[in-house]
Design a protein around this nucleic acid. Structure first.
Lengths: 358, 358
DNA sequence: TCAATCGGATGATGCGCATTATTAGCAGTC
DNA sequence: GACTGCTAATAATGCGCATCATCCGATTGA
């Protein structure tokens, strides 16, 4: 039982070669014109197998190589309750991908937290360096922070579409636009005409995309768009009644459960009187919550795809390899900006227009 | 905007001192008889502030220092599914602690998975080295794997009590014994006499402790212990009826919801006819699940306390510091084996003995 | 006056690895 | 026989940091 780390030098000694040779064998390719005979290669591989050698990630990283560590930076706390429900699925996907890739995950929990949001500071940025690359998730505000990443050519991938910054930001997002369009289509197909959009306006990408989808679809069907954007759930419910909507599409962060309660309090049943389609999974789970119809964001898949992409970027962009540009594995433009489809959810809140309204 | 990492050498240059001096200032203590004047110290600190220097964790680690990275090794997938969100609460606590400690978390997702369980192999063990220490959570089976950790003096802490291995394993656990005793006490105080224990016998520590608590408490009250350990929920329910229990304590992994369903199917109401106390939080959450009485395991606190302990162990045990044994911060024996209290939960499944039985 | 002491700091070294520069051996060429 | 060209490998270097051994000037003690 070795009490000390097993190093390449140990392996080299056993195989009767130099440490450099071991490194070459391990890294396969030989940047310079270095060649290793098949026989030597086998001797080294055997020695590795026997000794159970595994590279020291710290050393690999320090020497400018890849450590098989990928970072995860969340702009909000990762695990605490509400966010656990939100980030959870992403992380599940990320973990799966990490397992497949044989990679460890580094959570940057050391970044300073201000007002519940984590900041990617100049100092924090330096700590990213231990990882080969980094996943970013959550709403970021200080875009200046990203400049470092761009400047230094550090590999990173956003989870969630990023329309800003002239398409320079790699991301894996969800297709909120098509998803929303499809919901309107479903409603119209059932006979709905007065379809409202419930949700606060924001400048975040999901909101922009939902609104775009709603606008486009309503226009395509020749219907009038009507927005309900009140802070207060009760007021929102009242407005829904007032406007005589037969259906509404709701952004999921708007406490749909409470909205349903308020509607019920006004004698309005879902979906008998008003259909409610959710544009994404509910953010706040509740005991005995109902089965919402609408679409769901493929969070697990997004997480996994993002990590795969990051892994590729890291392999390409690897520290000292910026020179030999195009190679068989080069990441394509299309890969850099992926938008995944949001499947429809068949819940229990969709029905033809009720007798009450209309 | 620096495109390159800022190193201690940069800081040293700005402060007009040597790199070594910067290192000394940063590490506070001066192992050898090295002294730094207050004036120089300030110059260095200023330079650090101005440059925004942060240590390169990889280099720190390689040089035998602490990288402010703590590892988390879970013997099962870390982020499975919301429905079986077991690790979630632990991670919440861990993350909180990590934030406070200013430490990053490394998840060892690269470890090979066999039959859904992660293995801590000889190779995997070497990868732990990037972190200053490691948290271990979940049921481990291959105890041989731990030998490496023990041998190499690598700092680690188990989450969950570990009775085995002669108390050499540091852990932060929960007091299942007292928790269970208190549940029996509550039941007896209400007048219950026929109190059954429902749950499969296992050799895992929680089970052993629950059984011990049940045994001790029942004995103390002069009551007869009765165990129901059937795989099948329906059969278990039948047995409960058969035995004319007025109350049962149930290990939470035994699908209490389904058990309640089965009881209801037999005309037995909870808690009117049978009180049911859960010995820990339910493992499988369910929509509209009921509010169980019993006790809860302080998972978040366990996670946090474990990380704090690990942090201290790492600081003490730090790579090259094994010599100067006792120091003001030395970890005490008591800290190495913590057992946290499990608070009672006032749910809706506890009531005096019903009229049906007895 | 010279050695011993001490405060204050520097130089050198190595951690384990990736990579570049260099060497050794050998077959073929003019 | 000196030269080229090629294969197969090694030596040497540096990544950024912690640490040990050393050094220098100024006191101090005898």
């Amino acid at each position: 039982m070795p009490r000390r780390r097993i190093t390449q030098t140990d392996v080299a000694a056993m195989a009767g070669v130099s440490q450099a040779t071991v490194s070459f064998v391990l890294n396969g390719s030989t940047p310079a014109g270095v060649r290793i005979s098949e026989e030597t290669r086998q001797r080294v591989l055997d020695a590795i197998r026997i000794t159970g050698y595994t590279a020291n990630p710290a050393a690999q990283r320090l020497a400018g190589g890849l450590a098989q560590i990928l970072g995860v930076f969340t702009y909000e706390a990762t695990f605490p309750r509400p966010s656990r429900d939100f980030y959870g699925p992403f992380l599940t996907g990320i973990e799966h991908a990490a397992e497949r890739l044989g990679v460890d995950l580094l959570l940057f929990t050391s970044a300073p937290v201000e007002d519940g949001r984590r900041r990617l500071t100049r100092e924090g940025w330096q700590r990213l360096g231990v990882a080969d690359g980094c996943l970013l998730l959550g709403q970021h505000e200080h875009r200046g922070e990203l400049q470092h990443l761009l400047d230094t050519n550090y590999p990173f991938v956003f989870i969630g579409k990023r329309g800003s910054d002239g398409g320079r930001l790699p991301y894996v997002g969800a297709d909120y636009v098509s998803g929303t369009v499809r919901q309107i289509d479903r409603l119209v197909a059932l006979g709905h005409r007065r379809i409202g959009y419930v949700g606060l306006r924001g400048t975040d990408q999901p909101t922009l995309d939902r609104v775009e989808g709603y606008r486009d679809a309503m226009k395509a069907h020749g219907l009038t768009t009507r927005f309900v954007e009140l802070e207060d759930t009760a007021a929102t419910a009242a407005e829904i009644v007032e406007q005589r909507f037969t259906a509404v599409v709701v952004a999921p962060e708007n406490h749909p459960e409470e909205l349903a309660d308020e509607l019920a309090a006004r004698g309005v049943r879902v979906p008998d009187d008003v259909s409610v389609l959710l544009l994404g999974q509910p953010h706040h789970l509740r005991r005995g919550g109902r089965a919402w119809s609408g679409f769901s964001v493929p969070r697990e898949e997004m997480g996994a795809r993002a990590l795969y992409l990051l892994s590729r970027l890291a392999a390409d962009d690897g520290p000292r390899r910026e020179r030999d540009a195009r190679r068989p594995t080069a990441v394509t433009e299309a890969e850099l900006h992926q938008v995944l489809a949001c499947p429809d959810v068949e819940g229990a809140t969709l029905a033809p227009p009720g007798r009450t309204a209309r």
